[in-house]
């Protein structure tokens, strides 16, 4: 992978990380409310997959979708404004954290009912297939979502009609507090695809380049008209399920172990031909960003200067997003009615 693309990935991962950490802070300050599900730890999945897509492909995601929207190009300000419930938010303050939409960027929404993304995705794919377009649909879902009936129903239809869908499982190994072995008889999600003869691959979801490569490959096949693919990305969320969840059900050693393989660090490692020693990784502090920086300067691939610049740039982006959200107006009830009645297009009903 060329250095520019790699840096773009790094930028988006860094943005995803910092954006989410800032969300946590704004939540505690009372600027964001409701349920807030954050993404730290899982950045490699959204970044790797969406960077491998065309702008004409559709994205369907869950309630843990801020970073998917950001990577897709929804301006950070519009995402933050939505979390603040503002009129300038990408869903006009009506949807909030779990319901980001941006039709122009074919970001077809965040859905909060587990198992809803599959039918929506195959619906979009059906339209693409019917019109014979070279597009595809990316359908994100969690490990917990594969036990919903819609998973099987939708996979069956997708395979039956050879619909251009890439199912992407973000297997972070937990459905809220229930570990994958306690909720799934077959914890390897990719194996389930076989039941519908859907080609599949399991990748290291902490390795952005691996995810990117696997996605490119799958999309090539899909566009060739062979039908759906399923990609299982093994990943881990560093935080609790949502802001209200301390995540105490996970042993600290497990969390620590996963934090050692911080995807941000892995991404950076790819920029260097020399693999770091375990001592080097261990020597870095607990903060993933610090670790990265240390590593970069050691290798001279991303000089200290550049990294600091990148970090400063991302910090500024997040800061600007917060400022934009803070300064934006609230929607009115009139806006809410308009959102409800937009599709009526002024038709007289009575």
């Amino acid at each position: 992978m060329d250095r520019d693309r790699a840096l773009a990935l790094l930028h988006d991962m860094l943005l995803g990380r910092k954006f989410e950490e800032r969300c946590a802070r704004e939540y505690m300050n009372g600027n964001i409310a409701g349920f807030l599900h954050l993404y730290p730890g899982e950045e490699a999945v959204a970044v790797g997959v969406i960077h491998a897509c065309e702008a004409s492909d559709y994205i369907v995601s869950t309630y843990r979708e801020h970073v998917h929207a950001l990577v897709r190009g929804v301006p950070a300000g519009e995402v933050m404004a939505e979390l603040f419930g503002k009129r300038t938010g990408c869903s006009r303050g009506m949807g909030g954290s779990m319901h980001l939409f941006d039709p122009e960027r074919r970001f077809m929404g965040g859905y909060a009912i587990v198992g809803e993304t599959y039918p929506v995705a195959i619906g979009l794919a059906y339209g693409i297939a019917m019109r014979n377009l070279p597009e595809a649909v990316i359908c994100f879902f969690g490990d917990g979502a594969v036990n919903q009936g819609t998973f099987h129903e939708s996979l069956n239809m997708a395979a039956l009609w050879k619909l251009p869908v890439l199912f992407v499982c973000e297997n972070n190994q937990y459905a809220i507090g229930t570990e994958v072995h306690r909720h799934s008889a077959v914890p390897e999600v990719y194996k389930r695809a076989a039941a519908y003869r859907i080609p599949t691959e399991r990748v290291d979801g902490m390795d952005v380049l691996a995810v990117h490569k696997a996605t490119e490959h799958a999309l090539r096949q899909i566009r060739a008209g062979t039908g759906p693919w399923l990609l299982e990305c093994l990943t881990y969320r560093f935080r609790g399920h949502s802001m209200a969840d301390p995540g105490h059900y996970r042993p600290p050693v497990e969390v620590k172990a996963h934090q050692r393989i911080d995807p941000l660090e892995l991404a950076l490692r790819e920029l260097s031909p020399i693999y770091p020693t375990p001592e080097q990784i261990a020597a870095a502090g607990p903060d993933a960003i610090l670790k990265l920086r240390q590593y970069c300067s050691d290798q001279g691939h991303l000089p200290d200067e550049d990294f600091r610049q990148l970090e400063a740039q991302v910090d500024a982006e997040v800061e600007a997003a917060v400022r934009f959200a803070l300064e934006s107006p609230e929607p009115s009830l009139e806006d809410a009615w308009q959102a409800l009645l937009a599709n009526r297009r002024g038709e007289t009903l009575l």
């Binding site: 505690m28 300050n29 409310a33 409701g34 349920f35 802001m243 209200a244």
Partner: peptide, 11 residues
């Protein structure tokens, strides 16, 4: 340092 909002219903 302020008392953080830690859940949707916390007062």
């Amino acid at each position: 340092i302020t008392m953080p909002v830690l859940s949707d219903t916390m007062e």
